[in-house]
Design a protein around this nucleic acid. Sequence first.
DNA 1: AATGAATGAGGCTTCATTCAT
DNA 2: TATGAATGAAGCCTCATTCAT
Lengths: 197, 197, 197, 197
Amino acid sequence: MARVPAAERRDELVNAAIRVIASRGVDGATTRRIAEQANAPLATLHYCFQTKELLFTAVFERLTERYREVLIENDVHGDLVVTARAMLRGVLDWYLESDPEFASASFELISWAQRQEEHPAVTVYNEAFNVVRSILARAAAGQNVPPETIDEIGYVIGTLSDGFVVNWLTYGDRSRAAQQAQTVVDVFDAWLAVKLA
Amino acid sequence: MARVPAAERRDELVNAAIRVIASRGVDGATTRRIAEQANAPLATLHYCFQTKELLFTAVFERLTERYREVLIENDVHGDLVVTARAMLRGVLDWYLESDPEFASASFELISWAQRQEEHPAVTVYNEAFNVVRSILARAAAGQNVPPETIDEIGYVIGTLSDGFVVNWLTYGDRSRAAQQAQTVVDVFDAWLAVKLA
Amino acid sequence: MARVPAAERRDELVNAAIRVIASRGVDGATTRRIAEQANAPLATLHYCFQTKELLFTAVFERLTERYREVLIENDVHGDLVVTARAMLRGVLDWYLESDPEFASASFELISWAQRQEEHPAVTVYNEAFNVVRSILARAAAGQNVPPETIDEIGYVIGTLSDGFVVNWLTYGDRSRAAQQAQTVVDVFDAWLAVKLA
Amino acid sequence: MARVPAAERRDELVNAAIRVIASRGVDGATTRRIAEQANAPLATLHYCFQTKELLFTAVFERLTERYREVLIENDVHGDLVVTARAMLRGVLDWYLESDPEFASASFELISWAQRQEEHPAVTVYNEAFNVVRSILARAAAGQNVPPETIDEIGYVIGTLSDGFVVNWLTYGDRSRAAQQAQTVVDVFDAWLAVKLA
DNA sequence: AATGAATGAGGCTTCATTCAT
DNA sequence: TATGAATGAAGCCTCATTCAT
């Protein structure tokens, strides 16, 4: 077998894990299946990650990081309303564009994390929420918006995108989801108009 | 262990399954643990339900039924706006009142169903959606609301309550969730006002 | 497969474990090998003993019990000297007669027990020592022997028989061991004569 | 990790192996743990000793040598009785002084050797016995002692010290063992007096 | 009809060892 | 030469399920 630096192997395994989790659920994601998906012998998995849990933790971190990226990529540096809407829109579009795999794996992993003592599920949320908040805060600079409002806007963005993704994952109908994305943005706009009135 | 007729046992087993799923997740819900929780011999489980999958299907149906009930219980028989808001509020309150683990079990089970060939997760959603739609339709009678709008309202109710529950499950902080429920209703109201303007 | 009551199966497994431990050491005594030796599927082993450790504990108890029996069988109900000598002789003969397996397994298991937190190795020794002491005490009744002396005699019996068995297990030469048994008894007699002088 | 010449590493590895065996038993002495203990990469172990068995053989030889040394160090060059008693005493004291785990490792390793085809456990015993015999023979020179008696004395020394060490390992109570050592020497003296009468 | 006993398949992990550099 | 990377075999254990009664 070709000699591959451990770091690369780790990456492959994390990707494989995401694919398997997405398609078979966290509980269906056995070490054997992940190794197979990564085209590696089972023992290699344990060479790279001492433990299945450690592999999952790595997957978890990757997801967290990806969310961060998506949010930052969609920062349009406009005013509060424009920035907030763009961020929501960006997340929805990302869900629609990327393989449902990724979102699906996220949801599964959050359930998993919920049952782990360490690596609380809360981490992804907190991390994402912090990014959202800091982007919004910068956009609101000079507009005299109380911090509670910033937080509330962050919460609504999260709630709407979570709600959106649940439906999208359940039905998996992309064209329908595309329309729903528009509805979701409308909902957000309506509320924001009232909120910032 | 006392010999108990199969019919009774089926019920006990379904209840036991829900409890176990709630506390240990779908993958932690092994036949042994469910049987134990139901105070029944392991073999009895397979005597009553040929297969674990069949038991889970029964659980799934029970869940679907529960959603139906909650929706119907919260039908205030008012006009469209009032009825819609009450339904959303009712669902949110139900989530808040019942053990967070119950909602958790639902989500887990839906993920599970997603992966089964035979009993699509979509069923719960469709079922719930139909109930919502029929309640809304009746409330809208004589108000000349196009059916697409009814559907859209139903979708928003679903999206908001799903989004709400994800956060609630993640943080498990009841007092915070109670506040968020209000925000969610505000969001809904703002949009509905625009939509039905 | 014939339906066999669990108790019998457990017995078979304990016996198999003893055989395997004797021939391959505690560490060589894998669940697979034990199951094979007992002519049972691996899963059956775990049906009867939830854990390998529990099986070993059962083996351990069997050994302890066997020692007790041997000691009691060799109680000649004579005076102190006669009784003590008979007991030592009995143990040595038992070692010689029985398969070296048994003694070998004992020694291995004691090493094993030494490393377990629970089930301390000490148990077998304490148990055996108590039996020896009570037999000797009864034999010494009315002979005005201080209890420390009783204990010391017990210790010497133990030491001599342990020393004997180590050599016997190492060389496995029965005729040579038979001669050595005589030497050991001579040693004991010489000391006892001085001690009780 | 600094590159270290193989010759040095061999020594370090043998020492590491002894330490690991002492603390975790023969079965707990994995190649990884030994390498780690020796602060060497795992592959180095197999570079220095083609096989785990070869490493253990080296350990075994080191042990054999140590026994030889202890016996020779305790040769007082007196007459037969004095020399024999001193040798027994010396061995007992050595057991008492050194870590109980060292003796434990010896016993474990002897059990292990018993199960190897190639390097019979008997070697240590033979080697030790030869040393004992030659020391005793020299001490008996001119005293007209038949060689069988020399052998028998050697056997009794072995038996008593083995018996002693088993108890000492089992209870690990040093002060108690110190007293027992005296009893053991008394036993030896009593027998020797009769034997050489 | 109801259940204790039994089991094949597969779960995660660790082992001694080898390979490629 | 010396060592990170890799791996087949085997470790213990648990699963859903079936069988015999």
